[in-house]
Each structure stands twice: as C-alpha cells, then as structure tokens.
Amino acid sequence: MKPFTYERADSPAAAAAAVARTPGAKFIAGGTNILDLMKLQIETPTHLVDVNRLALDRIEDIPGGGVRIGALVRNTALAADRRIRKHYGVLSRAIVAGASGQLRNKATTAGNLLQRTRCPYFYDTAQPCNKRAPGSGCAAIGGISRQLAVIGASDHCIATYPGDMAVAMRVLDATVETVSPDGGTRAIPIADFHLLPGDTPQKENALRPGELITAVTLPAPLGGRHFYQKVRDRASYAFALVSVAAVIHPDGSGRVALGGVAPKPWRVDAADAAMKHGSRAVAEPLLAGARPAGDNAFKLPLAERTLALVMSEAKAA
C-alpha cells in the first residue's frame, strides 16, 4: 500500500470536487473492497476522500412510488429495511446471500455497486491482467476459470462481476444517481452502469472521473414473488457460481437476471418475455452467444437448472 493523504468530506459535491482536484484520488466508504486491493497494490490511490460522514445513509420514499436508497446505506440496513423486505424482497435476499454479516455491516450501497472482480489473476500482481495492467494480457483465458464469465466477456478479459446486490437491482430496474465535481447530477439506469470489457476491461462502469454515487432509486414496487437463488460450493460466505434474481407474477410472467456468469448483472429482454414458457425458453435467449471455457461450461446447464428451481418455487407458492 502506497502512502496517501486522507480527508473527510462534508458534502457530496465537495467530495466529488476533492477527488477531481487530486490526481489519483479515490473515494472510500465501507472500504471492504478498496482496502483489500490497496494492500495488494492493485489500487494505489494517492489521496482518499472519506465519504462516510455525508448524510447519504437514509432510505426515503419517493412521492408517487419507489424508494431512494442513500449511497451510504449499509448492506445490513438495506436488507433489513421493512419497505425493502416487503416490496423488494429480491434485493433483501440478494444482499443477505452475499459476503458475511461483518462485511454487510460495513459495505455500502454505492461501494457494493463498484465491487471489482474476484478473478484470481486480477488479484495476483505477478500475473498478466488487462483489467489491472491494461495491455499485459489475460492469464485467465486458458487458465483456471471455474468462477469466470461464460457470456459478455471478451478476448481481453473474462472476469465476472462478483456481486449479488446489483443483480437484484438490475431486475428491479434501479437507477444510479450521481453528483459530478461541477455539482451536476446524473441518473444512470443500472443497465448502463456496468460496462462489458471489450478491449478496455479496466473501464468497469459509467462513472466519470470524480463522479460520486449519491443514491440508488428503485421504481414503484413490482408486486409478484421475489427470488434470489445463489448457487455455490460452500453454503455461505462464497461468491456465486451462478445466481438468479427473479420477480415472478402469479401468471408466470416476470423478470430475471443472472449473477456469476458475466462481467455485469446479466439480463436480456427476450428472456423476460419468455418467462411463461419455462426455464429452457428463458435460458436460451438469456445465454445466447455464451462462450464458456472448459472449466466453466457447467454454468450454462446450472443457470438453466437454477432458473427451473426458481420457477418451480414460484409455482409452488
């Protein structure tokens, strides 16, 4: 970890300005991912702007329906919120399926969206990695890729987006609200927030330099039954091999997104449209164009089977 200077910001705009002002500056909120990466010298900020004291830790009702989740709402608080549990169960379920109680107490809504991949080659600075060291190559391609992406990857990077919360937010059509160093604000649909690697895998999201996430908004409740089914070898405290976030209505219609299979939460309109027709009909468009490696090919049948599980649970309800 390289030496860095540190300051505590007292407003979102000031925080954004502070990061924009200092080359190599970064925000720190929960810190559970950035400190992990700083210890390995994968992240090397010169200056940290601690945003924990910003008043962005509330969950508010939006007039006309929906909620605004402050960027600093901790994962535990979000999962435990009565409104989220009642109306956005898929989000509560996704959060409590991730990490551990300790990490969820610390991790924030915004920080979790920005969680970086768990690709083991990304984490090992002696190995080439286009995400960590652009142009150095990808050691994961042809290597150990059991956890890695089967769809949406590129010849430059096959890393998976590792989070759970964002998969639920994708299915809920969340919007990410930001403030820029100049004080301007933006609303980025979650579908556009995470980027596919293409030939710039180091560019993981739509944020501009210094842009700070202030909130995530959820539209009015969808109703239906909410599911987050996470599949992993270990029963807890493990990243998903495959996860399925779904909202399913009594008539079988609904929405679905996958985690653990792609560089971003994976959702395809045509798959949603096929929800009434069973897991195979959903899996086909959802995973069309998949390019698995040898040791992660099982994720394709696993995704379909997990869909089948969720759909059968929905029926049983």
Partner: peptide, 16 residues
C-alpha cells in the same frame, strides 16, 4: 496454485 487466499480456497464455514 491460483486460488491462493481464503476467498479462493474454500474451507467449510459454520453453515456447512
């Protein structure tokens, strides 16, 4: 050994 940390090398947890 590629999975050289305790997130990559999974050992049983309470839930198991």
């Amino acid at each position: 050994f590629v999975n050289h940390d305790l997130a990559g090398y999974e050992v049983p947890v309470h839930a198991d």
